[in-house]
C-alpha cells in the first residue's frame, strides 16, 4: 500500500489521481497533509499540486461524466472529510477504469458514497441559502456570518450574486475564517479579524454599526413569524425536523429577545 499526502486542495486531489496513473500504483491510501500522521508501515509520497496534471484529470472526467456528476465530485470534496477524499479518489479511478456509464452503478459503495455525500453538502448549501439573515450596516452593506458544517461558500456565491445584484453584501464563514464580499460588480474572497464586540454565537452585529432601520425590520419579521403560526396545528417535532436547533442561532425569528 502506498500513502499519498496531498495539500487538501481540490487541485491536489486531482493531481494525486494523475500521479497514481503515472506511477501505476495499485493500492493507494490518500490523506491530506493536515491530517497526516507518519506511519512506519506504508511508503509515503508527497503529491505536489499541479495545474496541468489536475486539468488533465478533470478533462478526462469531462469526457466520461455529465456536468451534474462533475458537480457531485466537487460538492463531495467540499465536505472536507478524510474518508471522502479516499472515496473521491477511488471513484475517479473507477470511472476511468470502466466503460462510460459506470457512474450509474449505485450498487457500488464508492459510487453511492460520493453521490450521497454530494447530496448532504447540497442540502447544507441549500440551508445556507435559506437561513442566512442579512443585517444592513450604516455603510449600506448587508452582512451575515455563518458556520456551515461543510465548506459551502464556493457553492452559494453565485446564488447570492444573482439575487442581490443591487446591494453590497458580505457572507463570512467563522469556522473557516474567510468570507465573500460583493461590491456591486464582482464577488471577492475576504478575510478579516473580528472585533471583540461581535458575537459569533449569534448572527447579529452590535447596534452601533447597524443602519437605523435595521431594528424595525427585524422586529417586523419576528412579528410576522409569530402572526402566521396556527396554534391549533402546532407540531414542534416537524418544526425541528425542518429547522434543526443548530441553525437557530442564524434565525432572528427564533431569538426571544
Amino acid at each position: 500500500m502506498k500513502l499519498y499526502i496531498f495539500d487538501g486542495s481540490f487541485e491536489g486531489l486531482l493531481t494525486a489521481v494523475f500521479e497514481r496513473y503515472q506511477q501505476k500504483a495499485e493500492k493507494v491510501k490518500i490523506v491530506d497533509s493536515a491530517r497526516y500522521m507518519p506511519d512506519a508501515f506504508n511508503e509515503a509520497f508527497s503529491v505536489v499540486s499541479n495545474d496541468v496534471k489536475a486539468n488533465r484529470v478533470w478533462n478526462g472526467l469531462r469526457k466520461k461524466l455529465s456536468s451534474s456528476w462533475l458537480h457531485d465530485i466537487y460538492k463531495a470534496f467540499l465536505s472536507e472529510q478524510a474518508e471522502m477524499y479516499q472515496y473521491i479518489f477511488d471513484f475517479i479511478r473507477y470511472v476511468f477504469d470502466n466503460p462510460k456509464g459506470a457512474e450509474e452503478n449505485f450498487g457500488n459503495p464508492v459510487v453511492l458514497a460520493v453521490a450521497q455525500m454530494s447530496r448532504k453538502v447540497h442540502r447544507e448549501k441549500h440551508r445556507m441559502e435559506a437561513f442566512i439573515r442579512f443585517q444592513e450596516t450604516s455603510d449600506r452593506i448587508f452582512y451575515a456570518h455563518i458556520e456551515p458544517d461543510f465548506n459551502v461558500l464556493p457553492l452559494i456565491s453565485d446564488h447570492f450574486k444573482k439575487r442581490y445584484a443591487d446591494q453590497k453584501w458580505i457572507i463570512y464563514d467563522l469556522k473557516r475564517k474567510y468570507g465573500l464580499y460583493y461590491d456591486l460588480e464582482k464577488v471577492e474572497e475576504i478575510t478579516f479579524d473580528f472585533s471583540q464586540e461581535m458575537s459569533p454565537a449569534l448572527n447579529t452585529l452590535p447596534a452601533s454599526v447597524l443602519d437605523e432601520k435595521e431594528e424595525l425590520y427585524s422586529i417586523l419579521w419576528k412579528d410576522y413569524f409569530r402572526s402566521i403560526n396556527i396554534p391549533a396545528r402546532k407540531n414542534m417535532k416537524l418544526h425541528i425536523q425542518h429547522v434543526p436547533r443548530r441553525y437557530w442561532k442564524y434565525l432572528s425569528e427564533k431569538q426571544t429577545f
Binding site: 445584484a165 396556527i230 396545528r233 416537524l238 418544526h239 425536523q241
Partner: peptide, 23 residues
Amino acid sequence: NHNKGLGDAEGSGICHTYTEDGR
C-alpha cells in the same frame, strides 16, 4: 435577475423558515 435589480425567481423555491406548526 435581468436588470441588475433585486431578486431572482428562477428555479427551485426556498423555505426561509418554518412556523411552529411545521409549515
